[in-house]
Design a binder for these strands. Structure first.
Lengths: 322, 322
DNA sequence: CTGTTAGCGCCTTCAG
DNA sequence: CTGAAGGCGCTAACAG
């Protein structure tokens, strides 16, 4: 069942049907005729034939480093929801934190002629830049920023600052910061700098330790140093949960003997008892914003190169996000 | 840069290049020539032009009811990983638990000419059956089974049985089962029946209550009935977490005064303290199995109509999944 | 407002 | 083994 068949049945020409499909000017009578035939046959135009001409596929590619992280999934939810409403398809590619796969995904999505690519970046290498250059597909970075590329990021520095000041105001003085490597600019640098600066406003300092994004790594790292502190500020909620488990294993009471905080606003931090203070990032809205920015870009509109989302401190015991 | 350009540069005809691309018989010399040009230009054939003829798109559609559930995400991870390895793209459509959107998604993916559809079903209505019939695209059900349709499910009944017997063996006697509606056959019926049967083997019974999949609903429901029981078997881990929070609010000690169990093997249940006994379903493997079954189906291979995954009981405090 | 006519980029007979 | 020619389903001028 193709445009030709419909045209024949309706007694008009292919191009008239095409116009019908694409909102060209058509008399009410022929419109009704075609309408009827389309309804009866359940005809739907072949997307590939359409794409072949139109060069627009209504597909947006999304490259995510992992598919089992709260942040990714929530952001993805925001993206998919918005795109679906705007009649676009979401193609996802998971890279399992493998940079090579990430580069491949860029080329492969471009070859699939997606209209645009949303890249949940961790770091931007020369290979990335080369890929952006080679493929003619517009790319928007999510979660990291890079000069000259469209980026949507969490307000890591300000969020860090807020948490830093939050702890600054308390009477706690032996403070550790448990962060991640600086290869991740957003989390490893901006977030940390914010925290340290915030503490500084209250004439406090934190000892600076490093771990990975994995809960188990954080837990092991924490075990070595927990006894020396009465507060641990963690770079992510996941790390904070690792610290919490470590405290539990070492029989250190939270929050009586140790205060813990994270970043992210993961569901879990509100479930664990005691609750952990955290900064909630608006991941779903971030996703929506990214998707909307992409569609705007594709329509030739100007969008700012850097967009920062807002955030919110969730103090322990003060809210239940359900 | 299209097949014509390549042909011109290589000094051969379009059809020769086409054969080169599709493994037709070609002399070594011309193959080398074309090879060189393709490498130099970075030419990649237009997928849409290909699909227009070939009718195979190397794309698999996945319809999920939610994008913020551990089970969905893990299964999705399994699917995406496998498909990527097999050089297929994953298109996801989230339906937000809306049946109408689910039906739409079926038609829309078919129109997008995906090679196959993996449907995370909750219920199968007449509209579903009609859609399956109308679209010529193969569909595999994930998580629910339906007579005459290819399905991959968790072994809900046996898992329920195992948990039932697990509690049967204990000295606990005042037992509640907190489940979901029977519209969900897998969880609402099979899982429950298993539990009740397992308890029966030890001459025990459970009072049967109903809630939704939402943690907050479960929490509220639990508050009303917790005081009367010393064990609550929950249909999902999410529900179990709701019950745990309710117990916390009511100052009921877990596990001293109340035992709680769930189904799913969510990360969270191993983080909360005390840990909750749960049945771990192999979601990632389920996803991989679903994807592999689909590709097998598309190659014309025979696959069983019903495939059941295995499961594993995780007793509280006995493991740390990290 | 409508029909005719070229392609879009690729694949696939069919000759040579 | 290779080239020419037609067509996949649709869109976009260009005439009427």
């Amino acid at each position: 069942m193709n445009i030709h068949d419909i045209a024949k049945i309706a007694g008009v020409s292919k191009s008239t049907v095409s116009r019908y499909l694409n909102g060209g000017s058509i008399s009410q009578r022929t419109r009704d005729k075609i309408d009827k035939v389309v309804k009866e046959t359940g005809y739907a135009p072949n997307q590939f034939a359409q794409s072949l001409k139109a060069k627009r596929t209504q597909m947006i590619g999304v490259i995510v480093p992992r598919l089992n992280s709260f942040a990714s999934n929530e952001t993805l939810l925001g993206i998919e929801t918005y795109l679906r409403q705007q009649h676009h398809q979401t193609i996802i590619v998971n890279t399992d934190l493998d940079v090579t796969l990430e580069i491949n995904a860029l080329y492969s999505l471009a070859k699939n002629k997606v209209d645009g690519i949303l890249l949940f970046a961790t770091q931007i290498t020369d290979e990335h830049l080369k890929a952006f250059d080679t493929i003619a597909t517009p790319v928007i970075l999510v979660g990291q920023s890079y000069r000259g590329l469209h980026s949507i990021v969490q307000n890591d520095y300000e969020a860090g600052l807020a948490i830093g000041e939050y702890f600054g105001k308390t009477s706690l003085s032996r403070i550790a910061y448990l962060g991640v490597g600086e290869y991740d600019k957003a989390v490893g640098i901006h977030r940390k700098n914010g925290v340290l600066e915030g503490l500084k406003h209250f004439n406090k300092v934190a000892d600076d330790y490093e771990t990975t994004f994995k809960l188990s790594d954080a837990k092991e790292r924490a075990k070595q140093l927990l006894s020396a502190y009465d507060a641990v500020i963690c770079a992510t909620d996941n790390i904070a949960l690792g610290v919490l488990k470590a405290a539990y294993d070492l029989d250190i009471k939270v929050p009586e003997q140790l205060s813990i905080s994270g970043f992210g606003g993961y569901e879990t931090t509100s479930i664990v008892t005691p609750m952990i203070t955290t900064v909630a990032f608006p991941y779903q809205r971030t996703g929506k914003c990214a998707a909307a920015s992409m569609l705007a870009l594709l329509e030739g509109k100007d969008i700012p190169y850097l967009q920062r989302m807002d955030f919110q401190i969730i103090e322990k015991e003060s809210v239940d996000i359900y």
